[in-house]
Simulated scan of single mutants.
Amino acid sequence: MNEFDFKEQLEIKITKLSQNIWEDKVGGISLNKWLENFQTNDDPSKCEQTHALYLVSNFMYFGTREIRELLKSLYRDKFLKPLVQTIRRQNQDTKLLRDIQSSIKKDLSETRFLGIGNPSESGTHLLYFFRQENNLSKDDFLHSHEIISMARSPVNQQVTLRLKNSKIRRYIFLDDVCGSGTQAIEYSKTLLSEIKALDPTIKICYFSLFSTAHGMKNIRKNTHFDEVGCIFELDESFKCFSDEARQFKGEAELPISKDFAKAFCEKYGINLLNSQEHALGYKSSQLLLGFAHNTPDNTLPIIWGETATWTPLFKRYQKY
């Protein structure tokens, strides 16, 4: 297969993906503008543009509709079903719907859902859809700063911490994607430690729509979360330059090279982020993943990086 035919097939595939799955995020003009970031070569095995097209043809994009469905699954599979099973076990395996619904209502009143990060970040952005899709009340949600309050003694002016609402027995933190688990670990060192110090019986959960296997393991090992889970776990095969990379399973039959692709992705990634560590995504996550609301920094920077001389394909809204 010559370079022209292969590139043409890739461009057709990307056009169809954009029209049918990517919510028309990528048009011919934007794709060509992005391709100008890369060098070309008559030999497809040494052509950066051909390899860049191939990488993008394996991009996983989740639009608003898919995110909403995933949020329904998260509520059902990570919260509601386990809760029903617990209620039944505590009531001699009852199947009486009235009793189960009554207990669910009570447990829900003692539960609050929160986003990871401050109110402007993607974790909290998802809460709006999460509330709508699962028919929840706005009272079932709060910000992390509403969990603990400070009181100053009028006698010695000493400041003490207390839980604002002692009736809340479960806090569930939601996130869109977990790469390394760093943010959840930072939360554990600060907020979760304070909650557990005030009341160790309170249950605190972390649920993400997507997570690397490493991220899940890291959070389970290094945080105070009582329960950790995700809807879609990304194993090593989703890291596009790993030994098990699914994107390059048919490499021998195609005019592409994983080593060549990794080399130029790393080269440009270092220039874009001024970092060797994050040149292939945050802490070398090496993902090809994006959402309607943003592109995570775990994705290859050549996809979302933006400078005066580099045009992104899927824009990332940075945290400044």
Results as ranks from 00 to 15, higher is better:
202 I>F: 01
183 Q>F: 04
199 D>S: 14
247 Q>D: 02
124 T>Q: 07
155 V>C: 08
150 M>N: 14
191 L>I: 14
214 H>P: 00
192 L>T: 02
210 F>T: 05
249 K>G: 01
251 E>C: 09
163 L>P: 06
191 L>K: 12
228 V>C: 09
232 F>K: 15
191 L>A: 05
130 F>C: 11
196 K>D: 09
173 F>H: 04
169 R>C: 08
196 K>R: 11
190 T>M: 07
194 E>R: 15
221 K>R: 14
137 S>Y: 03
128 Y>I: 13
191 L>S: 03
225 F>I: 07
158 Q>A: 13
199 D>K: 13
152 R>N: 12
177 V>S: 10
200 P>D: 08
132 Q>I: 11
232 F>Y: 14
246 R>N: 10
229 G>Q: 09
209 L>A: 10
142 L>N: 07
160 T>Q: 12
164 K>E: 13
240 C>I: 02
192 L>D: 01
170 R>D: 04
251 E>W: 05
129 F>A: 15
175 D>L: 02
198 L>Q: 08
239 K>M: 06
137 S>V: 05
129 F>E: 14
134 N>Q: 08
236 E>F: 03
147 I>A: 03
143 H>C: 09
135 N>W: 01
164 K>W: 04
226 D>H: 11
252 A>L: 08
149 S>H: 11
159 V>S: 10
185 I>S: 07
252 A>R: 14
205 C>P: 04
216 M>V: 05
228 V>S: 02
125 H>D: 13
141 F>E: 09
163 L>T: 09
151 A>V: 10
192 L>Q: 03
207 F>K: 08
214 H>Q: 13
180 S>T: 15
171 Y>N: 02
206 Y>N: 10
253 E>N: 14
195 I>L: 08
234 L>N: 06
147 I>W: 08
247 Q>M: 05
250 G>S: 14
165 N>H: 14
144 S>E: 14
202 I>T: 04
198 L>Y: 05
157 Q>P: 02
199 D>Q: 10
146 E>L: 10
236 E>P: 04
225 F>K: 03
228 V>F: 07
151 A>D: 12
170 R>K: 15
245 A>C: 01
202 I>H: 00
162 R>W: 09
239 K>F: 00
190 T>F: 10
240 C>E: 00
231 I>S: 12
135 N>P: 03
141 F>C: 06
166 S>G: 01
132 Q>G: 01
162 R>F: 15
199 D>M: 10
126 L>F: 08
171 Y>D: 03
229 G>I: 01
168 I>M: 12
235 D>C: 12
207 F>H: 13
236 E>L: 12
190 T>Q: 10
231 I>V: 15
127 L>T: 04
169 R>I: 01
203 K>F: 03
127 L>F: 06
